[in-house]
Amino acid sequence: KTLKIATDSGAKGSPAGNAIEEWAKAITEGTNGEIDLAIYYQNELGGQQEVFDLHVAGDVDLMLNWPMTSYDKRIAVIYTPYMFTTWEEALEAYKPGGWLNSMLDGIYADMGLKFFGAWPEGFNGVGTKGSYATNVDAAKSIKVRVPPVFPFHETIQAMGYQTAAVDWGELYSAIQTGVVDGDAANVIFYELEYFGDILDYYVRSKQQFITGMLTMNLEEWEQLTPEQQKVVQDAATAVMEKQFNEARAQDEGYAEQWKAKGNTYVEPTDEELGALAKTVREAVWPQMENEVGADLMQPIRDNSAKF
């Protein structure tokens, strides 16, 4: 039979596009052609929210998606600011069996999705034009766009920036004409890909660790034979492990390309990061508790990095 596989962030030939191609190929080969996959890249089936709707409804069977909070706001736990400060901590939490991985497993099941694992991109930061900031005071004169998802706005404001709501579709011209000074909360790949020509600085402030998720519609999953399920799961694990190994180098490569464009790449010092993390945790974590519940925040408090 033919299943549909999609990603919401990545055209054909992009790392995410290649990842779903590999996942699809491994499934077809592993099942000796019993399962065939139709591949849909970014925007081919509509916007990010639309494709996720299709996934939850079972029109898209397998997906590499960047989590949406509209069905379950507990998903926001993955955006808890300053949960990790190093790749090692993040990978430890997200790997199969890791503490965050198990937590997400249950949340996804409640949405009707089978959770396989993470497909990490790296730490995010703030891309700006004209000036940049590595501390709360310097950020006060900079106005950046934040995505309309909790707790991005709260986090970026706690970091000192002025925030603005600008639709993603209007962001390029908004930065270009100066409606806003930059884009907050993305990994450097997106700043390079979409705004590399108009931004000047990228400050890797590391407030969140951004990752896509490998998931399958639960009803479709249950219709597979145990052998087929194993093939799909193993293929997902292979894609995930490959990305765990390669993501860091990819991310560093994008930083190099960023510099090669004549832009400035800034890594805050440990003191600066520590100060930011302290301020932001104090401001945002209590709000997170209200949104996602204390029982979900407790493991985060127990496991996340100490400063």
Binding site: G46, G47, Q49, E50, D53, A57, E170
Partner: peptide
Amino acid sequence: NTLMLQGFRSLNSVV
């Protein structure tokens, strides 16, 4: 189940 939801999403655009 999703036909009309998709139509709704298309209209639900800031631009």
